[in-house]
Design a binder for these strands. Structure first.
Length: 347
DNA sequence: TAACCGTGGCT
DNA sequence: TAGCCAAGGTT
């Protein structure tokens, strides 16, 4: 039996029932694919339901403010996905009259869509035989064929794409693509794969040579940068505060945060007050207290943020324009969101 | 092209 | 615990 037939046979018996598998509407498939990039199904599912309800068509998404989209994306991470999603929704609605492009070569031109996502949409929605290569596919193919080329090397990316493309079932490419991904997610798992009950056990090179634990091979480990964040949580006597939108290239672009003083190490109150940024912001008298006695370590994929929240009580401030009761309207990072959950509001 | 971009679950 | 990894893409 051919590889794709055996795979689809497994899939029809074991596939998960997921809301985006009830449709071939490219808008919904696109939405689900963007949300699931580097994201587990269990984490993305609620966001998918929320987005499809709030934005049932690409026009609804296009009409929303970017800040609204980011607020709904809050907690899902990789926020450039949300910004690109919104940008592309506006492009499709306004320039293409709402008609989603229907070929791989057109789809991949869209902002936020790369080889994987274009292949997924083209195959699932338009029956085009373009093979997806995601983390699951790398794992299944590297094990089945015993390939030790690093999956994040230039040659590895080309090699696995070519193999995936050679294996695709051209009569049902969308089903094939979802089958190999579900197989990787549920059966040929990173840890403790179910080799004992595997339909490919008699032809899997890694299983035969006892290399399942060694594959796939991945090069290089990321370096984690340590940063020290001091957020100034301002409370004026008329219950207002300050939030700034993060701009520029770094993390959390487009999200809001309290005024931030970044330091080289953990600092105490004396060092905080001596900082020029602090004196610029608060020329008048203030009462300062540290909200978290232990530093909060917020871990991003490339950074560890050692964080202190300083509560600053002061008289009315001209640039403190945000009422505490409206603060939940702003999209904020989980680090800030967790603080707000924990912080006892006085009004 | 290597570095960067979030969050959460698992071992 | 600390590291890995998850339906990747951009610069």
């Amino acid at each position: 039996m051919k590889f794709h037939n055996k795979l689809i046979y497994w899939y029809l018996q074991n596939k998960r029932t997921l809301p985006w598998r009830q449709t071939k509407n490219p808008y919904f498939i696109w939405l689900s694919e963007i949300m699931l990039q580097q994201t587990r199904v269990t984490q993305g599912l609620g966001y998918y339901l929320k987005f499809t309800e709030a934005f049932p068509t690409v026009f609804n998404l296009a009409k929303a403010n970017e800040s609204t989209v980011l607020k709904m994306w809050q907690g899902l991470g990789y926020y450039s996905r949300a910004r690109n999603l919104h940008y592309t929704a506006k492009y499709i609605a306004n320039e293409l009259n709402g008609k989603f492009p229907s070929t791989f070569l057109e789809i991949i031109k869209l902002k936020g869509i790369g080889d994987y996502t274009a292949s997924a949409i083209a195959s699932i929605c338009f029956n085009e035989p373009t093979a997806v290569v995601d983390g699951n596919v790398y794992r299944v193919l590297s094990r089945y064929f015993g390939i030790s080329t690093p999956i994040n090397s230039t040659t590895g990316i080309k090699e696995f794409k070519a193999i995936a493309q050679s294996l695709i079932d051209k009569s049902q490419p969308g089903t094939y693509n979802q089958a190999i991904m579900d197989f990787g997610a549920l059966h040929c798992k990173p840890q403790n794969p179910l080799c004992d009950s595997c339909p490919f056990a008699n032809s899997c090179v890694a299983f035969e040579k006892n290399l399942v634990k060694e594959l796939p091979v991945k090069k290089k480990k990321i370096k984690v940068r340590k940063r020290y964040f001091n957020f100034l949580v301002i409370q004026t006597n008329d219950y207002k505060t300050i939030l700034y939108e993060r701009e520029g290239k770094g993390i959390w672009q487009g999200l809001y945060q309290f005024p931030l003083i970044e330091s080289e190490k953990i600092i105490d109150k004396k060092e905080l007050i001596a900082n020029k940024k602090f004196t610029d912001l608060f020329p008048d008298e203030t009462t300062i207290s540290l909200h978290n006695k232990k530093q909060i370590v917020h871990k991003l994929s490339h950074q560890h943020l050692y964080t202190q929240f300083w509560i600053v009580e002061t008289a009315s401030l001209k640039n403190a324009t945000i009422s505490w009761k409206n603060i939940q309207e702003f999209p904020v990072p989980v680090l800030i969101s967790n603080f707000l959950e924990d912080f006892p509001l006085k009004n």
